[in-house]
Structure formats: C-alpha cells, structure tokens
C-alpha cells in the first residue's frame, strides 16, 4: 500500500498493516532470551536485566531456562571446547526463528584466552551468529544496543523472496552438527558450512587487514 494513503487512513483512525509487518512486529517485541550464562560476560548480562538497565523495556526480560521456549541465545562468555558441544546442542534445540548474539571478546574469538588449548576461538565456528558485541565485558548499554540492532534486523526481514529468513526457507538447515570430543581437539574443529578461516595479510608495521570470506548461509541470513 502506498505510504501516503496509509498515513491518511491512520489519521482517520483506520489502522492498516501488512502481514509481514505484523509478523515482524510481534517477533521484535517479545524476544525471549535463553537463560544461559557462560562466564564473566554473563554477570553483565544479568546486570542488564536488573533495575538500572532494565531489559524489560524491550520485551526481553523473560529469560527462559529451557531452550524450547527461547528464541534468542546470548552467548555471554568464553566458550570452551568442553562446553562447545552443549552450546551447539542447545542452539539446535531452540525452535526457529532463532537468533544468536555473541557477547564479548571471548564468544567472538576467544578473546583474552585465545591462546588457550581448551578455548574455542569464537562460537561462530559452529553456529551462525547474528550480532557481535565487542568488549571485555561489554557494558550493559552495549548489550541493549545489540538488542535494538537485532530488533531492527528482524523488522527488515522479508517473508518472501530469495533473501527470506532461514526459518522460512526449507533448504536452509536449522540444526548444525554437534562436534565430538577427540583425543586432542574437538572433531571437527569447525563447521565449514558456517565458518571459513579469514585470510590475514600482515604488513611489517604490524597493522593487519583481515579479509573475511563469509560463509554463504550467513550472508543471506543477515539481511
């Protein structure tokens, strides 16, 4: 419908909407995060839900302990290799549509503990991530910002067409393989359908440029 006509109608007290808008509006305003804290960042996540920052303003104060009832996973903290299979499993158990916020340096890349033998270098090696929040730990305001960004993205999603979200596309996977514990490392060490190793070019001065070849599935999802 034409924007002008819509405005005119709403001035007359007639509210018009499209199914897509209604659908996205509903999802945007009641994102239920999974009650799932991993490390230090989780404390900031809890602080975000408390009185001062009050995540309830965004319709997301209901932290669900069960993945079946949640549609947003905030990976808040260091994902160790021992924990990674459970994280993937939890993600698989969440119903579509589902979103992932990777909160903090650790969840993005291993962060300060990147040299650790038991530290997964970023949860995006196994599951697709929608929003990354840098910081160690990110402040509650940063989490709120990520939250609003996610809401904006959901609002923009098209229900039809080639770049429709994953849960409306029967060809896209909604579950991802769970890594197994190996003798030295997790097997496999990453999911090549989700993650490709970035190509790094390092110059003598120490500045580096990272070229990130995005995995196909990820790119189409994020629009």
């Amino acid at each position: 419908m034409d924007e002008k006509l819509k405005n005119e109608l709403s001035r007359q007290g007639i509210f018009t909407t499209s199914l897509q808008e209604l659908y996205n509006w509903g999802r945007t305003s009641s994102l239920w995060p999974l009650n799932f804290g991993l490390a230090c960042c989780a404390i900031e996540m809890i602080a975000t839900t408390m009185a001062r920052y009050d995540m309830a303003r965004f319709g997301a104060e209901v932290f669900r302990p069960s993945p079946r009832q949640a549609d947003l996973m905030i990976v808040a903290g260091t994902v160790t290799k021992k924990m990674a299979p459970q994280v993937v499993r939890l993600y698989n158990q969440m119903p579509e549509p589902k979103y992932v916020i990777s909160m903090g340096a650790c969840a993005i890349s291993g962060g300060p503990f990147k040299q650790g033998y038991n530290v997964l270098k970023g949860i995006d090696r196994y599951i697709p991530v929608d929003i990354y929040i840098p910081g160690c730990p990110p402040r509650p305001e940063a989490l709120l910002d990520a939250f609003m960004e996610l809401q904006k993205r959901i609002d923009r999603q098209q229900l039809t067409g080639a770049d429709r979200p994953r849960h409306l596309n029967a060809d896209e996977p909604s579950e991802f393989p769970v890594p197994r514990f190996g003798a030295h490392d997790l097997e496999p060490a990453n999911n090549p359908n989700v993650w490709k190793a970035p190509l790094v070019q390092i110059s003598q001065t120490g500045t580096s440029q990272t070229v990130l070849p995005q995995a196909g599935t990820d790119e189409s999802r994020n629009n």
């Binding site: 990147k114 030295h184 060490a189 190793a197 790094v200």
Partner: peptide
C-alpha cells in the same frame, strides 16, 4: 605440550 593449531592469527 603442543596445543592444536586452531587459530588463524594471533595479535599478541
């Protein structure tokens, strides 16, 4: 002990 080679670039 030599850990698994699972990182791509290390800024430290």
């Amino acid at each position: 002990y030599v850990g698994p080679d699972d990182y791509e670039y290390e800024p430290t």
